[in-house]
Write a protein that binds this DNA or RNA. Structure first.
Length: 425
RNA sequence: GCGAGCGUAGCCAAGUGGUUAAGGCAGUGGAUUGUGGUUCCACCAUUCGUGGGUUCGAGUCCCAUCGUUCGCCCCA
């Protein structure tokens, strides 16, 4: 019998690791709700055209990384490669934009891209993201960035760098694109092969090539901020000023270009040195054209997503997370006693205690051994003698002290026990 | 999609063509049939990711395949 394994690029999150995920979700929920962001949950698959139109057909994500398939009704569906397109689709479909003002939304869940797996990059990966839709105010850009940095800081991550750039409006980019082509064309032969191809179809991407020679050439390339229109430049300057006012440090990176077509104006990434090649923990920016592109009214917006696998790699480097340990471990042996132990376990749980019931039926010695391995604070022992007299033995594992109580006495002194449990931790 | 390294038990591993596949952690049983964390004893891979091949002989060499890691690419 061959065993079935999880498919390439997917991972099981085991009980030993799930605590990190819960910690991130808990922290995120708190930060989001304090900033009045509402959770939204959208389907994991959508019509393929949503992503083609939203992300752009000439991006790598849409061009070669999507899980696209026909369903039994011959509809072309795609497992979502990112979260923003689905959120914007839902916003338009349910007219959320018409309820006035801005929409503050967040989401989390699995995303799918067909890529070569490596550290911090799975085919099914998870993001937590935020969208602020309905304002073009630079304060919106900064609110979004500030929430991201707050979340990461509250999780205890400090060695992170925020890089920002502005990619302007579509018109700004057209102007810049030509200037860049004019600059790069004389160097065409010296560029790496990928960049030579991009010179024709996506010259902006040449800027963040890792090829040393290309980087050298890109160093002196014209900068996009010099090609921004007056309003675009003012917007970006305001964003920088507000970041400074908030005490959020950042670096301007003229080569920061995002890979999805919908980005406009502010683009940013938060990176870590401790992740290897996949250094970006959080990426995002403004996307003023997307709502309209997907059939809604002209609506400005800004958002970001955090890659949870990468975030959790950083958390694991930093500290261990503990698994749930029982307050009481219920040791029982004998037909009658085992039945009573089950009932007692339930009663104690109703009173708010964490109780693990030993189901092995093995010797007391073995059950005690398991109790200490599970990290239990105390054992409650029910054997034939106790079953007959309606009593239990309460044993504190740390101090090895033991007392006999009736079950009624035990239940009556729960408040007391809570204090003792804390003292014996 | 391209390039490189790796794949021995649940985990960490030794093993460099001669065969009974070290060791440690974890686990199971017992010493101790009503009391754990220490100690002691025993057990725990007919087989080295999988499939072929070379060889008298393969965990070890070759090929393929799958997985994994790193880089490119891409992105979070």
């Amino acid at each position: 019998m061959t065993i079935i394994k999880a498919i390439r690029g997917t991972r099981d999150i085991l009980p030993t690791e799930v605590g990190y995920w819960q910690q991130v979700e808990k922290t995120a929920r708190q930060i989001f709700s304090q900033a009045c962001y509402q959770e939204i949950r959208t389907p994991i698959f959508e019509q393929t055209t949503l992503f083609e139109r939203g992300i752009g057909t000439n991006t790598d994500v849409v061009g070669k990384e999507m899980y696209t398939f026909l369903d039994k009704g011959d509809r072309s569906l795609t497992l979502r490669p990112e979260g923003t397109a689905g959120v914007v689709r839902a916003l338009i479909e349910h007219n959320l934009y018409s309820s006035g003002g801005v929409q503050r939304l967040w989401y989390t869940g699995p995303m799918f891209r067909y890529e070569r797996p490596q550290a911090g990059r799975q085919r099914q990966f998870h993001q937590i993201g935020l969208e602020l839709i309905g304002t073009s105010d630079p304060r919106g850009d900064v609110e979004a960035i500030a929430i991201a940095t707050d979340l990461l800081r509250n999780l205890g991550l400090v060695n992170l760098h925020l890089a920002i750039n502005s990619v302007g409006t579509g018109e700004d980019r057209l102007l810049y694109r030509q200037a860049l082509i004019d600059y790069l064309t004389p160097y065409q032969q010296e560029l790496d092969p990928d960049s030579q191809v991009r010179l024709l179809n996506n010259p902006l991407r040449i800027l963040d090539s890792k090829d040393p020679k290309t980087q050298e050439i890109a160093q002196n390339a014209p900068k996009i901020i010099d090609y921004l229109s007056q309003p675009s430049r003012e917007h970006f300057e305001r964003v920088q000023q507000l970041l400074t006012d908030l005490g959020i440090s950042y670096q301007l990176n003229h080569c920061l270009v995002r890979g999805l077509d919908y980005y406009t104006h502010t683009a940013f990434e938060i990176q870590s040195q401790d992740l290897g090649a996949q250094a970006t923990v959080c990426g995002g920016g403004r996307y003023d054209g997307l709502v309209k592109e997907l059939g809604g009214p002209e609506t400005p917006a800004v958002g970001w997503a955090i890659g949870l696998e990468r975030l959790i790699i950083l958390l694991q480097q930093k500290s261990a997370v503990s698994i749930v340990q029982p307050d009481f471990y219920l040791v029982s042996r004998g037909h009658e006693a085992e039945a009573k132990a089950l009932i007692l376990a339930q009663k104690l749980r109703y009173l708010g205690l964490t109780v693990e019931l030993d189901l092995s039926g093995s010797t007391f010695a073995k059950q005690f051994k398991r109790a200490s391995r599970q990290g239990a604070i105390a054992c409650l022992v029910l054997g034939d003698t106790e079953a007959e007299t309606d009593t239990i033995q309460l044993k504190w594992l740390k101090t090895q002290t033991q007392e006999t109580l009736t079950i009624a006495e035990l239940l009556a002194k729960i408040p007391d026990l809570n204090k003792q449990l804390a003292a014996n931790k």
